[in-house]
Design a protein around this nucleic acid. Structure first.
Lengths: 257, 257
DNA sequence: CGCCGTGTTGACTATTCTCAACCCAGGTGG
DNA sequence: CCACCTGGGTTGAGAATAGTCAACACGGCG
């Protein structure tokens, strides 16, 4: 029908429609009862424009936000204005499951593009954890996955050069988006400016610009109009010292035939 | 009796003896039954020498390791030998609760000093999650706490200068160790070399050495023989742009009277 | 038309790294 | 008991990486 990649794991048509169920299905088989519980808890849906904050540091929300469509990011800002992006969120990711257990947000979440967000009531989550051990473990698993990615970001920023670092980011996003069927061939959307990439990788916008040119010159990627195109995945991964194990994806299918 | 700081939260004498119960008590009140379950699951105890690996990348353990005494760290090594430390573990911290839900370790854990580690059987953890929702939430909470700290490390390495970065690390460890009563006045143990600090902060050992001298010269800290002494906490925290909210400590008592 | 956000470039600066040497304390073996 | 070795800490000099500042190009949009 189009060039979009198939979702990684085969699932029943019904569950596929719900991005959280699809995500959790990478970890466990949810019962029909559990699926129904999730679906009936995600009815309240809000829209955000690019740049809007979904939730801010210090907030104690009444519910947990689930990204249904669009891109968002976690970020923190230091007193003097320096900003660090901590994670990219893609459809199916939970924004602030933290708040359910930690008392308040220690960082903010902003929409990077026009986004749809469902809010699951606090009480629903509490109910899940009281009644559905399997679902609880699945939700817990998603937070462990987030943590694994954050750990790799520490390695990325701490040890890799600008060139390797940027290559690594593009690899990670490719694999994550491929797993949820949001890639189109060798391309995927990344609705950010070069300055935002700088806040992601701990580099200045000027240096981002030059490093991007280097990657393009070496035939590894291109990045235009919010779209990343991978020209040579093998070389990109080698340049990044990329190893996908930390993403804990069940499917390790070769992305390119 | 001695200079050691009091544990942050008042608890019954019995539970205080078990570091995991003490830690979880920062989040919730555990029932006697839950405490008993934890205690009877942590009988198998092993010792490690400084430098030993407690668990390695790729392992799928039969159990979850709990640090009872000593210091340890999470770390990852790139193919070409570069090493990044991802976290410091102190008594009461769980090493690899990940492995219970993620299939295998994506990083290694090494002992930084002579350490005692208890191994909780996989089956015991599974039993907890099936029978004790409150305990499950508490364990989940510990992993969210780890993640919050890891996120702050991303900010630290990505945005702060060498000087600020090192100051921030010393602040974090002071607060964490104070909360578990492992500080002695303004001092606490940190059994690492300068090269290890380099792997922690993403800096070369030479630069660590010089930055340490700067901090000492400015009267903020001293670091000798594996002991950190905070000379001026207010100035240190200001220099680091340190804000303790991300540690999600219940007690925010002033560390110095 | 003119403004603004974004991307690009050049010149210069600053931070941090690398390499190499040296010191010192502790441990080991002759 | 001493000579030696090793691991950690310290210093200097020079190089590389990345940041800052400033200017300009370009397109979208009021």
């Amino acid at each position: 029908m189009n060039e979009r990649s198939e979702p990684a794991v085969g699932l029943k048509a019904k569950t596929l429609r719900h991005p959280l169920i699809r995500k959790l299905s990478n970890f466990t088989v949810l019962s029909l009862e559990e699926c129904d519980a999730i679906e009936s808890a995600t009815t309240k849906i809000a829209e955000f424009a690019a740049g809007d904050d979904v939730i801010q540091r210090g907030d104690r929300t009444g519910g947990v936000n689930l990204l249904l469509e669009g891109f968002a990011c976690r970020y923190k800002i230091l007193e003097d204005g320096r900003r660090q992006i901590l994670a990219y969120l893609v459809p199916g990711d939970l924004c602030d499951l933290h708040v359910f257990l930690l008392r308040r947000m220690d960082h903010s979440i902003g929409a990077l593009s026009r986004s749809k967000v469902a809010t699951i009531p606090q009480s629903a989550i509490l109910g899940f954890t009281n009644s559905y051990p399997n679902l609880t473990r699945a939700l817990w698993w998603t937070t462990l996955l987030d943590e694994a990615i954050t750990r790799e970001w520490v390695v990325n920023i701490g040890q890799r050069t600008a060139y390797e670092r940027m290559a690594h980011l593009f690899c990670e996003l490719f694999h994550r988006l491929h797993a949820i069927g949001e890639t189109a061939g060798k391309s995927y959307p990344l609705p950010v400016t070069q300055a935002t990439l700088g806040d992601t990788l701990g580099l200045s916008n000027v240096h981002i610009n030059r490093t991007l040119q280097d990657l393009r010159r070496d035939g590894l990627i291109s990045f235009n109009n919010g779209t990343v195109t991978i020209k040579n995945l093998a070389k990109l991964e080698a340049a990044a010292f990329f190893s996908p194990d930390y993403l804990h994806l069940l499917d390790v299918t070769e992305p390119f035939a």
